[in-house]
Each structure stands twice: as C-alpha cells, then as structure tokens.
C-alpha cells in the first residue's frame, strides 16, 4: 500500500478544512529545510549557470562581461582541462573496480564462519572514519623516499624502489592504492550486510543440486547482491570523479600535471587564475559528465541482470 493510499484511508471522511490545515502545517514543517536547501543548494546551482556565461569579475561582479558560451567553447581547446579529465578517468579506472572487487572479497571472507568477525569488521571499516588529510599525511610518510618504511623494506629485498609520489608511472597508482585503504570500508560494510541478507536456504538448495562454490557465487551471491553492488559501484564512481584532497595534499597535482584532477583544476582556475566564470562552466560540465556516467552505469547493470 502506498503512502498516499494509507493516508487517504486514514483520513476517510475528514472535512475539507482539515486539508487546509495540513497544507499549512506541511509548509511550516518543510520550511526550515526548504529555506536552507533553496538558498545554499538550488540558488548557487542556478547562479553558477549564470556566472558561467560571463567573464566574471570577482571584485566588482556588476562589471562582469557577458560572453555567451565562450567559457564552454574554451574547454574544447584547453589542454589543461583535457589533461585533468584524462587523469580523473585514469583514477576512476584504477580505483572503482579495485575497491569494488576488494571490498566484495573482504565481505565474503568476513561473512564466513570466521573467528573474531566483529574485530575484522571494525578493522576494515575504520580507515573510512579518517579525514582525507590524516589519511594523506600518513601515506606521504609511508611512501617517503629516504626514510619511508615501504621503500626501506623494498630496498632490503634488492629492489630499487621508485619515488612513488614523484614518479610519472607511480604517482596516480600510489594515490589510488592509498584511496583503496581509506574508503573500501564503506563499500565493505554495505556488501557484507547485503551478503548477510541472502537467505541461506538458497545455498543449501544449490548444494543439494550439486553446485560448487563458484556456481553458487555466480548464480546466487552475485544476483542476490546486485542492488548493493550497483550502489557501491555508483557511489565509488561519484566519489572518485570528485577526487581532490589526496592529490592536493600528496602531490600538488605533480609530477608534471600527472595527478591534477578535474576538481583540482576547477579549484586552481577559480582561486589561482581567478577565473570564476570559467570555473563555474567547468563545474557544470563535470556535473554533466557525472550524470551521464551514472545513468550509463544504471542501464548497464539493468541490462546485465534483468
């Protein structure tokens, strides 16, 4: 039964004036949130669109010059924009599959008859409650050349380790790896809870049919967990696209501009190059990309599973 049906059956033959009273109360109860929401979310969203059509003057906004879609056109030939888009996609490709598969593995492992399940769950989840600065600062030290433990131990084995965060090849993977440690816990908890709500009798039935564990995984676990997996993929996609803190703190976008991501570029355009209009246009385009990717992913999953 829908909310609507329940409400109308509840109200039965109440008078029209009741409805008016509920309208007023409804508005009063909604007002505080709607005011915040409109002022600090909707209004900026619209104003951003407006600003993106201007050569915005941050000091004297009224002197801003209307330039139509030039800010959008500029992106086409802006090498730094394409570079940051490429870097962001690379980061997404590195992290999303890795985090999803890794946290699925952890969830399935912890779901088994394992001693100390509560402790394991707490350990795997814990990095997620750290702020990005703490996570980044710790890993700067772990990756450090000269005294960092990772390189010290690698040198012992005779490998000549790279300067992780200064290397063209390794800087982004190093950030991706640190990110996996940092945020996998969120996906892990969701996948674990989804796995635990798969009814056991399905597995017992499959066992009676002689299905091995691989088939049980493929035919029961995956389909039963698909909503949770879908959610985890989407949320990681959205997060990865918005990566800012890790490269901002760990590499400043270097070496070269290898780890300058979209949001970092937007930040630099706004507060370093002082081009608010272009930055607002960038924000809009990034949102567009994000929406398209989310929907594409949605249809992809639909197609596979239903």
């Amino acid at each position: 039964m829908s909310t609507k049906d329940q409400l109308s059956s509840l109200k039965g033959g109440f008078l029209e004036q009741r409805s008016n009273k509920e309208l007023i109360e409804g508005i009063l109860f909604s007002l505080p949130y709607l005011a915040t929401f409109s002022l600090f979310l909707l209004y900026p969203l619209l104003k951003g669109g407006y600003m993106s059509l201007f050569e915005w003057n941050p000091f004297f906004p009224s002197e801003s010059e209307f330039i139509g879609v030039q800010n959008y056109a500029r992106m086409m030939s802006d090498g730094a924009f394409w570079n940051s888009l490429g870097n962001t996609l690379y980061f997404v490709v590195l992290t999303v599959p890795m985090i999803v598969i890794f946290s699925l593995g952890l969830a399935l492992g912890v779901n088994r008859d394992i001693k100390g399940r509560g402790v394991l769950r707490a350990v795997f989840f814990s990095p997620y409650i750290l702020t990005v600065s703490v996570a980044a600062l710790i890993w700067i030290e772990l990756y450090a050349t000269g005294y960092g433990p990772i390189n010290s131990y690698l040198s012992l084995t005779g490998i000549n380790p790279p300067a992780w965060l200064q290397s063209y090849t390794w800087a982004m993977p190093a950030i991706a790896f640190m990110t996996m440690w940092w945020i996998s816990g969120f996906s892990f908890v969701i996948l674990l809870s989804a796995r635990q709500s798969v009814p056991e009798y399905l597995y017992e039935a499959a066992k009676l049919d002689g299905a091995g564990s691989w088939r049980a995984f493929r035919d029961i676990t995956l389909p039963q967990m698909r909503h949770a997996i879908f959610f985890v993929v989407i949320i990681n996609l959205v997060w990865s696209f918005q990566i800012f803190g890790q490269p901002y703190i760990m590499t400043h976008g270097g070496p070269g501009k290898e780890t300058e991501t979209l949001v970092m570029y937007l930040y630099n355009v706004a507060f370093n190059q002082r081009n608010f209009g272009y930055a607002a246009a960038l924000g809009y385009v990034l949102t567009g990309i994000l929406v398209v990717v989310s929907f594409a992913n949605y249809y992809l999953f639909r197609g596979n599973n239903e």
């Binding site: 104003k47 941050p58 918005q242 937007l266 608010f276 924000g283 949102t287």
Partner: peptide, 20 residues
C-alpha cells in the same frame, strides 16, 4: 526535487556558493 539534487555534486556549487 530533493531526491534529484543527489545528482548535484558538491564541487559544482563551490564558486557561486563562495560568492554567496
């Protein structure tokens, strides 16, 4: 509308929100 605003990532608003 509120649910649709899930689609709005935080960064898109930083510039106009900053001016506000």
């Amino acid at each position: 509308i509120i649910i649709a605003s899930f689609m709005v990532p935080g960064f898109v608003n930083i510039i106009p929100l900053f001016t506000l």
